[in-house]
Amino acid sequence: STAGKIFRAMYDYMAADADEVSFKDGDAIINVQAIDEGWMYGTVQRTGRTGMLPANYVEAI
């Protein structure tokens, strides 16, 4: 389960779609929910934006 875990971005990511979020390497991602194998839903702490993000760009900390 991803509940209550904080994730950290390992790479920069530029949102490719309106429902995705952009983030930079080192950003903390909070309130994360796993959607499926490849995608998560969460909030980028630095920007306050919430949306979909690729699971392979982040790691649990």
Rank of each mutant, 00 (worst) to 15 (best):
S1F: 12
S1P: 09
A3V: 11
A3W: 07
A3E: 14
G4Q: 09
G4M: 09
G4P: 10
G4N: 11
G4K: 11
K5S: 09
K5T: 15
K5Q: 12
K5G: 13
I6Y: 04
I6G: 07
I6A: 09
I6M: 14
F7C: 05
F7R: 07
F7M: 06
F7V: 06
F7Q: 03
F7I: 01
A9T: 05
A9P: 03
A9N: 08
A9R: 00
M10S: 08
M10V: 09
M10N: 09
Y11G: 14
Y11A: 14
Y11D: 12
D12Y: 00
D12A: 11
D12G: 04
D12R: 01
D12M: 01
Y13F: 00
Y13V: 01
Y13L: 02
Y13T: 04
M14F: 15
M14W: 10
M14Y: 13
A15F: 03
A15Y: 09
A15R: 04
A15V: 02
A15E: 01
A15Q: 08
A16S: 13
D17L: 00
D17E: 08
D17N: 12
A18L: 10
A18D: 15
D19G: 13
D19A: 09
D19L: 10
D19Q: 14
D19K: 14
E20Q: 14
E20M: 01
E20R: 01
E20I: 04
V21F: 15
V21E: 04
V21K: 05
V21P: 05
S22K: 05
S22Y: 12
S22Q: 00
S22N: 05
S22R: 03
F23N: 05
F23C: 06
F23T: 06
K24G: 02
K24D: 02
K24E: 08
D25K: 15
D25W: 10
D25M: 15
D25N: 14
D25L: 15
G26W: 01
D27C: 02
D27W: 00
A28T: 15
A28C: 13
I29E: 01
I29G: 05
I29S: 07
I30L: 10
N31D: 10
N31S: 10
N31I: 04
N31F: 07
V32I: 06
V32Y: 02
Q33S: 14
Q33L: 09
A34G: 11
A34I: 15
A34Q: 15
A34Y: 14
A34D: 12
A34V: 12
I35N: 04
I35V: 13
I35H: 09
D36R: 14
D36W: 04
D36K: 14
E37S: 12
E37K: 09
E37M: 07
E37D: 09
G38M: 11
G38Q: 15
W39C: 08
W39Y: 06
M40N: 04
M40L: 13
M40E: 01
M40T: 07
M40G: 04
M40C: 11
Y41M: 14
Y41L: 13
G42M: 00
G42N: 00
G42Q: 08
T43L: 04
T43N: 02
V44M: 00
Q45G: 09
R46P: 03
R46V: 06
R46W: 03
R46S: 10
R46T: 02
T47S: 06
G48S: 02
G48K: 06
R49N: 11
R49A: 14
R49C: 10
R49V: 09
R49F: 14
R49W: 02
R49E: 15
T50D: 04
T50E: 10
T50I: 05
T50M: 09
T50G: 06
T50L: 00
G51D: 02
G51E: 00
G51A: 03
G51T: 01
G51F: 00
M52N: 03
M52A: 08
L53I: 15
L53T: 02
L53K: 02
L53V: 15
P54S: 04
P54E: 01
P54Q: 01
A55L: 07
A55G: 06
A55H: 01
N56Y: 01
Y57D: 00
Y57R: 10
V58C: 09
V58P: 06
V58K: 00
E59F: 00
E59T: 10
E59W: 00
E59H: 14
A60T: 12
A60L: 12
A60K: 10
A60Y: 06
A60E: 15
I61Y: 10
I61P: 09
I61V: 15
